[in-house]
């Protein structure tokens, strides 16, 4: 039986990246045996979850080397496993570390690689959305293995209640692959719900005109349940908010119940990150802005004024005024 492998990123606490669970769920439907590979501190603790989502085997190592050094040790370990077991397809999430490892593994093994996939329809076939999701590109992959990098939220994650066999990976990583060392980790703790999981996302763009106006989004979010704040790359690059807020091609993918775009033009690179929202509200003073083409509810007007009115309206409904 052909094998499909999912590479899973894991935190030190053993929490598996959600996208890996989405990929496992998808892999189950491809008529192949499904396995997962998880490397670095936390890996053993992830095995249960990976089995629950469909991995029949989990190749793992808790070795610090995979966390301490960028990309090279994981590529080496994966290359050994691939040589030994010849999986047909390897699926990665388009996350930072995964993308690096997949690129290296492609060169190391000669495996063809498809990036930014939004669909996987067979062991040799995947799809990707371009032009802000308005065009779907269908790609046939040849050779073995094939590497597919899949965008987060392309599939729903569903547990199936399985238990995985655990196979420990011997990590013999030579010194020449221990060059790019992580010296320090700076993580910003975002307040409120995680942007990727929030039921409501309010995002701001350059049309908010000043970093101070961006605070209106925080005020509104504070009044709503399960709401997080996001941003376009334009305002992230301008330094208004940290990169962790960025939604789009090079940022996060969100799929909330309601997405409010305030002062956002709707560039294709932004749209790919939020087009999956159930309802989209756009506030933009330019009636021809592309964001209106995907909006369920469009307001042509000044974003700051509309946000201020909305804050008052929400307060009123909550009986706060």
């Amino acid at each position: 039986m052909p094998e499909v492998w999912v590479y899973a990123e894991v935190t030190h606490a053993g929490v598996v990246d959600t996208t890996a669970l989405e990929l496992l769920t998808r892999a189950r439907s491809l008529g192949a045996d499904v396995a997962a590979v998880v490397l670095g501190p936390g890996a053993s603790r992830a095995a249960g979850t990976l089995g629950d989502y469909g991995a029949s085997r989990v190749y793992l190592s808790d070795d610090d080397v995979f966390g301490d050094f960028v990309a090279q040790p994981a590529t080496k370990a994966l290359d050994q496993l691939v040589t030994e077991h010849s999986p047909e397809m390897l699926m990665f999430a388009t996350n930072y570390d995964s993308r690096d490892i997949a690129g290296r593994l492609s060169a190391k093994t000669g495996a063809t690689l498809m990036s930014n996939a939004t669909g996987v329809s067979g062991l040799d076939r995947a799809q990707t959305a371009i032009s802000g999701g308005s065009l779907m590109v269908d790609v046939v992959l040849r050779g073995s293995p094939k590497i597919v990098l899949v965008r987060p939220k392309s599939f729903a994650a569903e547990a199936m209640g399985g238990v995985a066999e655990v196979i420990n990976v011997e990590a013999r990583i030579p010194d020449e692959l221990r060059q790019a060392r992580r010296r320090e980790r700076q993580e910003q703790d975002a307040a409120g719900p995680n942007l990727e999981d929030a039921g409501i996302v309010i995002a701001g763009g350059r049309g908010l005109q000043a970093p101070d106006n961006f605070k209106l989004l925080d005020r509104l979010a504070g009044l709503l349940d399960d709401c997080a704040v996001g941003a376009t790359r334009a305002v992230v690059d301008a330094g208004w908010v940290p990169y962790a807020y960025q939604i789009g091609q090079t940022g996060k993918t969100v799929k909330p119940g309601v997405y409010i775009a305030a002062g956002i033009s709707g560039a294709t690179q932004h749209l790919v990150g939020m087009k999956g929202a159930k309802r989209i509200v756009a506030i933009n003073k330019d009636g021809d802005a592309p964001i209106f083409e995907v909006a369920d509810l469009g307001v042509v007007g000044d974003a700051v004024k509309v946000l201020e009115q909305l804050i008052e309206e929400v307060k009123r409904r909550k009986g706060q005024t």
Binding site: G199, I200, L223, L224, D225, D226, C227, G257, V258, I260, K278, R279, V281, I283, D296, L297, V299, G301, V306, Q309, L310, E312, E313, V314, R317, K318
Partner: peptide, 15 residues
């Protein structure tokens, strides 16, 4: 605008 957006938010149980 404010009322219509608030309706959507209420539908989504955010208010």
């Amino acid at each position: 605008a404010a009322a219509r957006i608030a309706d959507l938010l209420a539908e989504a149980k955010a208010i």
